[in-house]
């Protein structure tokens, strides 16, 4: 069946008790606990087509993991609905489990005390994968991830990069149509990251798996995802292709200048914003619809500041996303201010 993901108005509110400080506070909390509601995910809707890789992006605490947990079935939403390969995950967890594979970065599902290959064998049994198929798939994964050099090692002795590669293999051993990866490459070195990217690309393009990935690594997004969904404070901010995002959040160019005076005051110019500053190095980008062309901007910067070096290039995705986050932040705080500014009572 098709490995599509449909998310409609998905919401999740957590209720937690806050602890009051001090002994008296602790006693008070015991008698009358202070319950606070935290809206981790609010009315999120999106679709992922079969065989598509979608990057779910957002700053820390945006609600990415919460969304993935609902889609894997280990968390029930407070409102809305989700379907993964035709199954409502939190209603039919075991059925959903056969269709999906999941890696929660930093959390391993491998058996700590056993050689990796034993873990693979246990999972093969749990998912009832025929022996020949299991061997063939392990061979395929080994070709891409070079597992055989360490798969006889006990998990406790693996490096992070080795372990995550094994975890990826473990999550895909039962040939799931849909794969959820929550920050899988966090903390890994560049070489391993590239290997993992290659592996994921292969899984999407050759095996037709649907992948939902969260990451903070924009290089990864750029190389892997055609489409991204951006959430912030639990709300969907944007759903589009990388090109759309680049267009929407301006930065189609950057001007990088090295200032002669590293302590000089730097302010945004007309239609030009300051993206970053590291000592004498400053990076400018376009600001809003009235932004000048990159050459006009270059001229303006040179006229305004004394620079020892200057270069132009297209903004990297990192900056685009930063702009997107900042704008989303501004939009949501503007929204939040409306009720307090509005006159109370009448409507």
């Amino acid at each position: 069946m098709s490995g599509s993901i449909q998310v409609r108005g998905l919401s999740r509110t957590f209720h937690t008790t806050v602890r009051r400080p001090g002994l008296a506070g602790a006693l008070k909390s015991l008698i009358k606990p202070d319950r606070v509601a935290k809206e981790a995910v609010v009315d999120v809707s999106f679709d992922v087509a079969p065989g598509e890789l979608l990057a779910l992006l957002g700053p820390n605490g945006a609600g990415k993991s919460t969304t993935i947990k609902m889609l894997t079935g280990i968390l029930t939403p407070t409102a809305g609905e989700a379907r993964v390969a035709g199954v409502v995950p939190y209603e039919e967890r075991e059925r959903n489990a056969r269709n999906i594979g999941a890696v929660f970065g930093q959390r391993t599902q491998l058996w700590w005390d056993l050689p990796v290959r034993e873990s693979f064998a246990i999972l093969r049994d749990i998912y009832e994968v025929p022996n020949a198929e299991h061997r063939a798939r392990l061979g395929e994964f080994d070709d891409l991830l070079e597992l055989s050099s360490f798969w006889d090692t006990r998990v406790r002795h693996l490096s992070l990069g080795q372990r995550v590669r094994c975890d990826l293999a473990a999550a895909l051993l039962h040939d799931p149509q849909v794969v959820f990866l929550d920050e899988p490459t966090i903390g890994m070195d560049v070489v391993v990251k590239e290997q993992v990217r290659e592996f994921l690309r292969h899984q999407v393009e050759e095996r037709g798996r649907t992948v939902l990935l969260t990451t903070h690594d924009m290089t990864e997004v750029e190389r892997l995802a055609e489409r991204v969904v951006l959430i912030n404070h639990g709300r969907l901010v944007l759903d589009g292709t990388l090109d759309e995002i680049r267009r929407k959040f301006g930065s189609t160019w950057q001007v990088r200048a090295t200032l002669a005076d590293p302590h000089a005051r730097v302010e945004p110019l007309e239609g030009i914003s300051l993206l970053r500053r590291e000592g004498p190095q400053v990076v400018f980008g376009p600001d809003g619809p009235t932004a000048p062309t990159v050459h006009q901007a270059l001229k303006q910067v040179i006229e305004r500041y004394e620079v020892t070096d200057i270069a132009i290039d297209e903004a990297d995705l990192e900056d685009v996303m930063r702009t997107a986050y900042v704008q989303a932040e501004a939009a949501s705080s503007a929204q939040a201010e409306v009720p307090s500014g509005a006159p109370a009572g009448g409507d």
């Binding site: 947990k69 894997t72 079935g73 280990i74 967890r93 075991e94 059925r95 489990a97 056969r98 999906i100 999941a102 929660f104 959390r107 391993t108 599902q109 058996w111 700590w112 005390d113 999972l123 749990i126 998912y127």
Partner: peptide, 25 residues
Amino acid sequence: FAGRDTVIQHMHFGTIVYWYLRPLA
């Protein structure tokens, strides 16, 4: 505790999710 496969450890490391992600209760 040696095997990191006790409930308390899975709760601590957050790996308990995998127990609920498999087609085995």
